[in-house]
């Protein structure tokens, strides 16, 4: 599934990295705990999180995650956007809860990591 399709399904806004919205995503992982993300390889996947601080962008970079969905109406800070730009990462802001986002993406065929 393309990042642009994910944004459309969620009625969400790509706030950074729009130029990479053609990237294909196969897997998703949802967590607010970055230590959990760091134990879960999902290269080129998408991270769904309510953690809106630079550490979610850093963690995504360390794990080669292609895009980050900020759930629960969280907004990307300037620091997050500038870090994401440096790392060619995509940030999507979505007003829905992590559970709601996960449900929509799962029913549309995006696989869990495990």
């Amino acid at each position: 599934m393309k990042i642009s399709e994910i944004a459309t399904l969620l009625n969400a806004k790509i706030v950074c990295g729009e130029e990479f919205s053609d990237r294909e995503i196969e897997k998703a992982f949802a967590s607010d705990l970055m230590s959990d993300v760091l134990t879960t390889p999902f290269d080129n996947g998408i991270l769904i999180t309510g953690l809106a601080n630079p550490q979610s962008i850093r963690t995504a970079d360390m794990m080669d995650v292609s895009a980050i969905i900020l759930a629960r109406k969280k907004k990307a800070t300037e620091e997050m956007i500038s870090l994401a730009q440096e790392n060619d990462a995509v940030i999507i802001e979505c007003p829905l809860s992590v559970y709601h986002i996960s449900g929509i993406l799962y029913t549309h065929g995006l696989s869990p990591v495990y």
């Binding site: 607010d32 705990l33 970055m34 230590s35 959990d36 760091l38 134990t39 999180t49 953690l51 601080n53 550490q55 979610s56 963690t59």
Partner: peptide
């Protein structure tokens, strides 16, 4: 913890 860490996973994850 607010930064998404502090769950007692750091050193075990490093070791792994």
């Amino acid at each position: 913890r607010e930064m998404g860490f502090g769950a007692g996973m750091g050193l075990p994850n490093i070791k792994a």
